[in-house]
Design a protein around this nucleic acid. Sequence first.
DNA 1: CAACGAAGTTTAATAATGCAACCAATTGGA
DNA 2: TCCAATTGGTTGCATTATTAAACTTCGTTG
Lengths: 157, 157
Amino acid sequence: MKRTSLAGDSCPVARALDVFGDWWSLLIIRDASLGRRRFGEFQASLGLAKNILTTRLRALVERGILKTVPASDGSAYQEYVLTPKGHGIFPILVALRQWTEEFDEHPDEIATIMVDRDKGKPVKKLALLSQDGRVLGAADTTLKLRPARKASRRASA
Amino acid sequence: MKRTSLAGDSCPVARALDVFGDWWSLLIIRDASLGRRRFGEFQASLGLAKNILTTRLRALVERGILKTVPASDGSAYQEYVLTPKGHGIFPILVALRQWTEEFDEHPDEIATIMVDRDKGKPVKKLALLSQDGRVLGAADTTLKLRPARKASRRASA
DNA sequence: CAACGAAGTTTAATAATGCAACCAATTGGA
DNA sequence: TCCAATTGGTTGCATTATTAAACTTCGTTG
């Protein structure tokens, strides 16, 4: 079976999914972005098996999403915190959240809303803008082949 | 495996992942948003096993992301197209794409860039704004308990 | 109407997941 | 200081998912 790896794919969506596209990683990242850091915190919050959590944490560290830091409350245990690369996933979490807010069949089951810390008011929907400031929908965009950057650096197809 | 269902979770991120958080669904949705509609197109593009594709397509139809339409080129086969709920996933695809563009170790392997159809220029990064127009980062946001919905007042925007 | 292709289904092997039990090091407490 | 509980795992085993490939069932084509 050997779950097909998407790592070599040329599509950036696939490449992202290859890094954190499994069943648990994004939830771990969500928890981390909410300030959870300890193995036990993740395990209690997510309710996943500990061996799976071990595997996932290791993979996320390996891929540069999380890093382990020695302590924080003085104990000899280690903690898992987001790297900048991990913090960069935040917009994806927001997009997922907003999709549920808009399309879920049971919005009454959603417990939380995202607000800006200053005013406490709900944030606006993520907006995709053109360089001249127009709001773009899916139909207003296209994909173009990435212009070749440096010299000849043709990896695989 | 019995992949634990996230359907009943109160976190909107988990609820979204429950719908299309598996290994293939988002790629199928990506393909659909690029205009692919036929079983064979998806299979050829994604290179996944046909039985898996069958399962995934069925699940996505069941969950209201895709719908089957009778034809389009006159043949008696059916096609799979995005519903509005499915089109709503577009920002998530954009967010995934932009994360890879920013953080991938091998950006030279990314084949395409997203441009606005009018000008052909790259789109800007998704921006999260407060209601008064400030750009918000993860640290500028918090989660609040969703206010209980009043029956008489109108639903929130 | 025979052959071909599209769209699945079935089957069997293999890999990922979940659960529970186990274990070593750390910590807290008496 | 010594012991018990907690933390952070590891190990086995049963269960479920994924995969590739062979097989089926149509519709389409020559």
